[in-house]
């Protein structure tokens, strides 16, 4: 009995859990090892576990562009795609923040009729299939002349980013409480002073988290960019798609895959400090 009790309560990992964590690490990280190798391979015939000829051995007499030379050259459009991705992501984040901050404040603090219906409406973009939104929006944007333009893509990116942003900012406002602002007002601060000296500094960590996450979602969007960009605007996900659409992965495609992974890794390292698991704990439309 005592032994069973200990097992049930233990805060240590069971042997199965240790094994499971190793499997998960292999499942997530494992595929990146051959990916890195592939990007440096020159010839990699089938049963070999390592390339028969490495890129460096063939540097001087290569007829075709070698993987990293090609990836880093303007022909691959990697630089253009990176600039587009960052640009679109930043503008989307700023607009999203501007729209969601006031709404989140009201949602966190006020009660009004139809509030739960409104909250459900706000999370609707997450549960309507993206393909349906994408194609229907494309028809609308072709009529409006927005298809294949930055404006069109930025507007479309607002749809999947708004629900996350509103949710995260609402959580921030709920945690903030009203007391500090009221105290500042009682002490004679003006509305502007309250906003600048009290609200904003206290909101900042949460706002940074929301902004980072929105940027992340925007840079990962493939379908809306692909459908609405009409091939005229490449971002990192759509560039990679065009490289692997044939179902094969050569050395240059492996290089581009690694480049596309980089922003995510950078964001992961930055955001771990800001994005807290707790912000996602809220259920749906309850």
């Amino acid at each position: 009995m005592a032994r069973k009790f200990n097992i049930a309560l233990s805060s240590r990992l069971s042997p199965f859990q240790k094994f499971y964590l190793l499997i998960i690490a292999g499942f997530i990280l494992g595929p990146f090892i051959p990916l890195i190798i592939q990007s440096f391979a020159f010839r990699w015939a089938w049963p070999d576990l390592l390339p028969g000829t490495w890129w460096l051995e063939q540097r001087d007499r290569a007829m075709v562009p070698l993987a990293w030379d090609y990836v880093l050259s303007p022909y691959s459009r990697v630089w253009e795609a990176t600039v587009n991705t960052v640009l679109i992501g930043s503008i989307v984040t700023v607009i999203c923040l501007a729209i969601c901050l006031p709404a989140a404040r009201v949602l966190a603090r006020e009660k009004f009729r139809g509030k739960s219906a409104f909250e459900f409406f706000l999370s609707l973009p997450l549960i309507v299939p993206e393909a349906a939104i994408g194609i229907a929006l494309l028809m609308m944007f072709i009529r409006l002349g927005l298809a294949g333009s930055y404006v069109g893509i930025i507007i479309a990116h607002l749809i999947p980013t708004i629900p996350y942003m509103v949710r995260m900012l609402t959580a921030v406002y709920q945690g903030l409480g009203r007391d500090f602002e009221e105290q500042a007002m009682i002490l004679g601060a003006s509305r502007w002073q309250v906003l600048r000296l009290v609200t904003l500094p206290m909101l900042l960590p949460g706002v940074v988290a929301g902004a980072l996450f929105t940027f992340l979602v925007s840079t990962n969007i493939f379908l809306l960019t692909f459908f609405l960009g009409q091939g005229q605007i490449v971002t990192l996900p759509t560039l990679l798609f065009s490289k692997i659409a044939g179902g094969t992965l050569d050395a240059s495609a492996a290089g581009i895959t690694l480049i596309v992974t980089l922003p995510g890794i950078i964001l992961l390292i930055i955001s771990e400090r800001f994005i807290k698991e707790e912000a996602f704990g809220k259920g749906f439309g309850n």
Partner: peptide, 18 residues
């Protein structure tokens, strides 16, 4: 959290490779 941070197309490339 790593897979959460990168596009689906990267996952597809890894699937092709593996």
């Amino acid at each position: 959290k790593l897979p959460l941070m990168i596009p689906y197309t990267v996952g597809i490339a890894l699937a092709v490779l593996m």
